[in-house]
Each structure stands twice: as C-alpha cells, then as structure tokens.
C-alpha cells in the first residue's frame, strides 16, 4: 500500500513538473506571442493591436504559472494555436480512434508474439527459431512509417500496423525468455520425468515469466502510442498520433504540452501497474 502511494505521488509530481516545464515552453518559446494572422494585409492597426493583446503572455511569472496549473488541474489545456479550439475538445475527439487502434494493435501483437514464442519454445526446433527470429528481425528493421505505407497500400486496418510494429519486440523478448526458462535444469528434468507439457508450460515456464512479461507489457504501452504517430500520419488517420505530428510541425505548443502530459500519464500508469504486478508476485513467492 505504501509502495502504491509512493508511486502515485511520483506520478502526480511528474505531471506537475511536466506541466510547469510545458508552461515554460509555451511562455518562453521564440514567437510564442506572435500570431500568423498578423500578416493579413487587410487588418487595420486597431485589429492588429487587439490580436497582439489577445496573444500577449500575462504579466507576472507567479500568476502565470499558478493560473496555468489551476487550469491544468481543472482539465483546461488552453486553446490550440492552429485551430483555436479548446485542446480538451480536440483530445476528446481524437483519443477514441488512437485508443482503439493502439489498444487492438497492442492486443494483436501480444497474442501473436506470445503465442508464437510459446510455440517455438515448446517445439524447440532450431531452424524454426531461425525462421521466427529472421521474420521478427525483418519487421523490426522496418521503420514504422514503412509499415504504415504497406497498411495504406493494402488497405488493412491501422491496428494491424500497430501490431506489426510491436510484434517483433514482444516476440523476440518472450522467445528469449521462454527459451531460457525451457532450458532450465528443473524443466528438463520435469520433461524427462514425463510431466505433462501443459503443466510444464503453465507452472514452470509461464508463471515464472510473468514479472518480466509484466515489465514488457508496461514498456510496450508507450511503444504503442509512439508507433501511432508515424502510422496515423502516413495512413491519414485523425487520431492523437496525427495530432501530435501536426502540432509539432505547426509548433502548436498547448496541444504538444497536453499530449506530452497525456502520454506521460498513460506510460507512467502502465509502469506502475506492471511494477505492482511484479512486486505482488515477488511477495507471494516469498
């Protein structure tokens, strides 16, 4: 319980520090208070002055940060500099698509990667290991954007592309882990004694692998969101990944800061969950 409280406190601290750094970025970035509309030759001097007032940073550093954090806690991330829409609305509109594609892709990669790793570990055929490692290596060497182009050409869903990006990482890690576990003396002895394959798999291979697999599950959550950026850009999918790209190229700092905080929240939360699983298992074994 104390560990969980500590981890949650760490998460909150990370978000607060991230928020403050984000606010600093917004305030101090060159041209932060410049609006491209100022170049509109039709605008009168009065309109230009109004536009500048609208974009000017508020006076006073403390009031600026306090106001920013206050709005952040209330879920107000400000307005997008690109579209003028509230960032919260944009995130709410786009998040479901990314959650769906990244979530399904994550599941596909885990089901595929783990199943194949188990199969190969169970079969213990060296040439199948080579084939599996070769295929995974090939996928691993392909940049996510290339996989995105393949998805675009073939018309397959984005979740398959996310799955293809994550699959080799999960497969290679699980394969090595399970192969190692299958090669342990007590497993070999159990096999020699004729213990059932299912029992060996569940109790002597999978169960001991759970802490490492949980850590991998935490790490691949962040990777799934990372993969969504190039994939959504290439496949023109209006999710958070595409939004991140557009915000980066247009230097839409309020959107970038909100996305950074959101991804930090997701990654840190999954890390905490993975760590909790690992520590829970360690305690139960002890």
């Amino acid at each position: 319980m104390r560990t969980l409280a500590g981890k949650l406190a760490g998460l909150v601290l990370t978000l607060v520090v991230g928020g403050l750094l984000g606010a600093t970025l917004v305030r101090l970035a060159p041209g932060a208070d410049v609006d491209e509309r100022e170049q509109d030759a039709r605008l009168s001097e009065a309109s230009l002055a109004a536009l500048r007032r609208e974009n000017a940073a508020p006076d006073g550093v403390v009031s600026f940060y306090a106001g920013y954090l206050g709005r952040l806690i209330a879920g107000d991330f400000g307005k997008s500099r690109g579209t003028g829409q509230p960032v919260r609305e944009i995130l709410a509109e786009r998040a479901p698509l990314t959650l769906r594609s990244a979530g399904f892709g994550y599941l596909l990669a885990w089901v595929g990667g783990l199943a194949l790793a188990l199969l190969l570990a169970g079969l213990r055929s060296s040439w199948l290991d080579v084939v599996g490692a070769g295929a995974a290596g090939l996928l691993l060497s392909l940049p996510a954007a290339c996989i995105g182009f393949v998805a675009l050409w073939t018309g397959i869903g984005l979740e398959w592309a996310v799955g293809a990006v994550l699959f080799p990482k999960i497969f290679l890690f699980s394969s090595a882990l399970l192969g190692n576990l299958y090669g342990r003396p007590h497993v070999l002895q159990a096999l020699a004694k004729g213990l059932s394959s299912a029992r060996i798999l569940v109790f002597h291979v999978l169960w001991p692998a759970v802490p490492e697999l949980a850590a991998l599950a935490g790490a691949t959550t962040g990777l799934a969101f990372g993969a969504a950026i190039p994939l959504e850009v290439v496949c023109d999918s209006p999710g958070l990944g595409q939004l991140a790209w557009q915000a980066a190229t247009a230097r839409d700092l309020p959107v970038l800061v909100a996305l950074t905080l959101l991804v930090t929240l997701v990654v840190k939360t999954s890390d905490i969950l993975a760590e909790l699983v690992r520590s829970g298992l360690r305690e139960s074994r002890a």
Partner: peptide, 13 residues
C-alpha cells in the same frame, strides 16, 4: 531557416 512564429517574431517584433 526558422519556424514561422520565430521568423515572424524577428521580422515584426
């Protein structure tokens, strides 16, 4: 080469 806001800041401010 500068991104547009930085460039506009330099030429207009």
């Amino acid at each position: 080469t500068l991104d547009m806001p930085s460039l506009l800041e330099r030429i207009s401010r």
